[in-house]
């Protein structure tokens, strides 16, 4: 009997080799997909008529968080951490909304491009400060989070500005099917257009290299300081995308940073990115953002105080890191 199942298993490997090898390589993502399915099932049980509108809401709501998580993932994979993601989002959102208000569509295109360039600049400043001063990443980005948020507040005091209609339409509503929110399509396109080619390029390899082992990267000929700045610039780029998503989502901008920095850290940790650098990707963090979102609305549906969502998030953040260090300890011991 065991021989029979073995033979069967071997044939199956032959058929779906690509799938199985992918599953073997990314157990964490498979687990997250499973978790996501479980929470969808729970949601469906709690609210029997949860369906396309719920998915639409999810698509719109998670876009800024997901982009923030991608931003954080890139810098953490490269061995850093950026506590100013939320502030950069606020600043880029404010700049885009103020410049776009009452302007033509064409002008708005220019504003969007300019905002992305601003994001790259903000991130590059963070990275350059870290490289130049040798002050730890945490201190520099914590301090810069105040600088960027302060600049946003200097531009406008209260929520304001506007968004070009086409920008808002890009992320709102369904595409083709009512089950496919445009927000998720935009997310997929952005990740597909920026992250996937990057990851396969030498640049992407260098980012993983400096996060994984700085000395080995240096000895492999990677310009480690320049790559560090590049990693922060990319984080700035995705933060500005997240900022634009905020603008497009609400039609205006708030100068006060939301809780996106914290959430991005929780998401990348849950999404399988190692805080020590070098390991992880951006798909895991995006799935983690969706899981965190579902946890929050499920708690709402049960009628539990939504503030428990924060508690759960904090517990998940701590719990996952504890689990990670526990597993790492086990691995060291033979």
């Amino acid at each position: 009997m065991s021989a029979a199942t073995e033979a069967l298993g071997r044939r199956r490997v032959g058929v779906g080799e690509a799938v199985t090898s992918w599953i073997r390589r990314s157990p964490w993502i498979v687990a997250l997909i499973g978790l996501l399915v479980v929470f969808f099932a729970i949601t469906k049980m709690l609210v029997p008529n949860y369906g396309a509108p719920g998915v639409q809401a999810l698509g719109i709501s998670i876009l800024p968080n997901a982009l923030a998580a991608v931003a954080q993932a890139i810098v953490v994979i490269s061995g850093g951490i950026d506590l100013s993601v939320g502030s950069m989002m606020a600043l880029t959102s404010v700049v885009s909304a103020v410049l776009m208000k009452g302007q033509s569509d064409i002008f708005a295109v220019g504003v969007v491009l300019g905002t992305l360039a601003l994001g790259v600049l903000l991130g590059a400043i963070n990275g350059a400060l870290i490289v130049a001063t040798r002050v730890p990443d945490i201190v520099v980005t914590l301090a810069m989070s105040f600088v960027w948020a302060g600049v946003a507040l200097l531009i406008i005091h209260t929520p304001g500005g506007g968004a070009a209609p086409w920008l808002m339409e890009t992320i709102r509503g369904p595409l083709v099917s009512e089950w496919i929110p445009r927000g998720l399509v935009v997310l997929a396109v952005l990740v597909g257009a920026i992250w996937i080619p990057l990851r396969r390029s030498n640049l992407g390899l260098s980012l993983f290299a400096i996060g994984s082992n700085r000395l080995a990267a240096f000895r492999s000929g990677v310009p480690v300081d320049r790559m560090k700045i590049v990693s922060y610039a990319l984080t700035g780029l995705f933060s500005s995308l997240a900022g634009l998503a905020l603008t497009a989502n609400t039609g205006n901008a708030s100068p006060v940073p939301g809780p996106y920095t914290l959430e991005s850290i929780a998401a990348i940790v849950l999404g399988g990115v190692s805080l020590a650098g070098g390991r992880g990707g951006v798909v895991g963090p995006i799935l983690a953002v969706a899981v965190l979102y579902l946890i929050r609305i499920d708690l709402q549906f049960i009628g539990i105080n939504p503030n428990f969502g924060t508690v759960v998030q904090g517990v998940i953040l701590i719990g996952v890191v504890m689990l990670g260090s526990f597993l790492a300890l086990r691995r060291v011991r033979p």
Binding site: N202, S206, S212, N213, L215, A216, R219, G221, G278
Partner: peptide, 28 residues
């Protein structure tokens, strides 16, 4: 390396979190 000198160190200069092929690509 451009000057024609390459070293093999006691701690291998390989990135732990990349596969061998990517490590080779990284060093062209």
């Amino acid at each position: 390396r451009r000057g024609g000198v390459v070293s093999v160190y006691q701690e291998p200069a390989l990135i732990p979190d990349l596969d061998v092929r990517s490590n080779l690509r990284l060093t062209a």
